[in-house]
């Protein structure tokens, strides 16, 4: 890549397109899934970990090392915690209406058979 302003324009283009995609993608989410959506998007911005790793890799001197270490730690909390908690929420949405009870009963009888 060369040229000073071309690079910036490229990133700006990506940014603007992502704004539209972001808006488009959630416009059809039903309100019952708002909480998992918030939690899921919370996990996705945990990808800041990639950025934290890059600055950690190039850090030099005590101050940068400590701050870089903290950045990686916090970003890991965000990404790992975010995906885990979202999965836990969505685990409860797995069954369709009626299937829940059937499955629970099925589990009961299986337990009984053993």
């Amino acid at each position: 890549m060369s040229g000073n302003t071309t690079g910036i324009l490229e990133f700006l283009t990506i940014f603007v397109l992502a704004v539209f995609v972001g808006n488009e993608v959630v416009s059809r989410v039903p309100s019952i899934l708002h909480t998992p959506l918030m939690s899921g998007s919370n996990a996705i911005h945990g990808i800041v970990l990639v950025g934290a790793m890059i600055v950690m890799g190039t850090a030099s001197g005590a101050a940068q090392m400590v701050l870089g270490f903290l950045a990686v730690l916090l970003a890991t909390l965000n990404i790992v915690g975010g995906f885990t908690v979202t999965d836990r929420m969505l685990e409860m949405f797995k069954a369709k209406p009626g299937e829940n009870q059937a499955r629970a009963k099925g589990a009961d009888t299986e337990g009984g058979a053993k």
């Binding site: 990506i14 940014f15 992502a18 704004v19 539209f20 995609v21 972001g22 808006n23 993608v25 959630v26 959506l37 998007s41 919370n42 996705i44 911005h45 990808i47 800041v48």
Partner: peptide, 8 residues
């Protein structure tokens, strides 16, 4: 990723 989350 950041912009997606920001916009949505």
């Amino acid at each position: 990723a950041g912009t997606l989350v920001g916009a949505s």
